[in-house]
């Protein structure tokens, strides 16, 4: 069991009456990975997480956490996960420390150990000052932290956070990011979020889900490369317009090009490579050979957001109506 991957999902399907929320997804999350779970609204992220947390049954397929089947051994699975649900539900009538203590006891921690762990997570999540406050009277960001602390309190093997950073201020987002990075060294983490830079910075891998299907599952770097979105080169060259348009035609490395007039005799050229090759030396060589002038040469980097938009747009025409 120790060497089994943390999450193994095979052909998992969840159907609601009249709607398929998760449509035969298959993926694996290895131990120690920090995985971002992305997808537009209604993609099925929360549903998948709920199935993994043994809260919902699936309609078909297999899901295993730490080698335990979520349906057959839910107790083993639940003991190993720290799950923060999407809406971050808390008992709003309890005080912060009281609530965490209660949750720790619920998760089977002994009396002394639950005290120690609560102290630690209060520290980790920056809740020490508010530990006497009633959770219902906290601001949303602080409640979010309480939910996070709850997910961590029993030192789970797998932490699943469903949109943990909504409602946090930038400082706090940074702090959470740091916390996740820190935790990620020892634990497996699955985060669903819409804040993509965060994923880019914290996650080693992303899973992109749309309409219940997995569109991509890879490291961000690989994704960028595979989708050939990377490596578009922008150059500003002073040259005769015609010559500038003609010179790219015969080059096999270049897939598309575009020439637009800039100011004066300058033109702005956008070049897309065929298989991710770096076009900058080639451009420079051409300019030098023709004795043109070059005032800018940049290789644009696409963000995860671009990938996300790119990937989900085609199917996303009917998104709003879902």
């Amino acid at each position: 069991m120790i060497d089994s991957p943390m999450i193994e999902v095979h052909d998992l399907t969840k159907r609601y009456p009249g709607r398929t929320a998760v449509d035969g997804i298959t993926f694996t999350v290895g131990r120690g990975e920090v995985v971002g779970f992305l997808g537009p609204n209604g993609a099925g992220k929360s549903t998948t997480m709920r199935i993994l947390a043994c809260f919902l049954p699936a309609t078909g397929g297999t899901a295993r956490v730490a080698g335990f089947d979520v349906y057959r051994e839910p107790d083993e699975v639940r003991r190993r996960i720290g799950y923060m649900p999407e809406s971050n539900p808390l008992h709003l009538d309890m005080r912060v420390r009281e609530y965490l203590k209660f949750r720790a006891r619920l998760k089977g921690l002994g009396w002394q150990r639950s005290r120690d762990r609560v102290d630690i997570v209060l520290q980790q999540c920056g809740l020490t000052e508010v530990h006497r406050r009633i959770t219902g009277q906290l601001s949303k960001g602080y409640r979010q932290r309480v939910g996070l602390a709850d997910a961590l309190v029993h030192e789970p093997d797998l932490i699943m956070l469903d949109e943990p950073t909504i409602g946090l201020d930038p400082h706090q987002i940074r702090a959470v990011r740091a916390l996740i990075k820190e935790l990620g060294k020892t634990t497996t983490i699955l985060i669903s979020t819409h804040i993509l830079p965060e994923v880019e910075m914290t996650c080693s891998r992303v899973l992109i889900l749309n309409q219940g299907r997995i569109l991509a599952a890879d490291t961000t770097e690989n994704l960028k490369r595979k989708l050939s979105l990377d490596g578009q080169v922008i150059a500003e060259i002073a040259a005769p317009h015609e010559a500038l348009r003609e010179c790219w035609r015969d080059l096999p490395e270049i897939e598309r090009w575009d020439v637009a007039p800039a100011d004066g005799e300058w033109f702005r050229v956008a070049l897309t490579p065929r298989n991710g090759a770096d076009l900058r030396p080639l451009v420079f060589a051409i300019v030098r050979d023709n004795e043109w002038s070059l005032r800018e040469l940049t290789r644009s980097r696409h963000s995860l957001e671009d990938i996300f938009i790119h990937l989900t747009r085609q199917q996303g025409k009917d998104l709003p109506g879902q």
Binding site: A58, T59, G61, T62, A63, V70
Partner: peptide
């Protein structure tokens, strides 16, 4: 050697 499905149909 796939494990039996968690949620078999029927």
């Amino acid at each position: 050697d796939l494990p039996p499905p968690s949620f078999p149909s029927g």
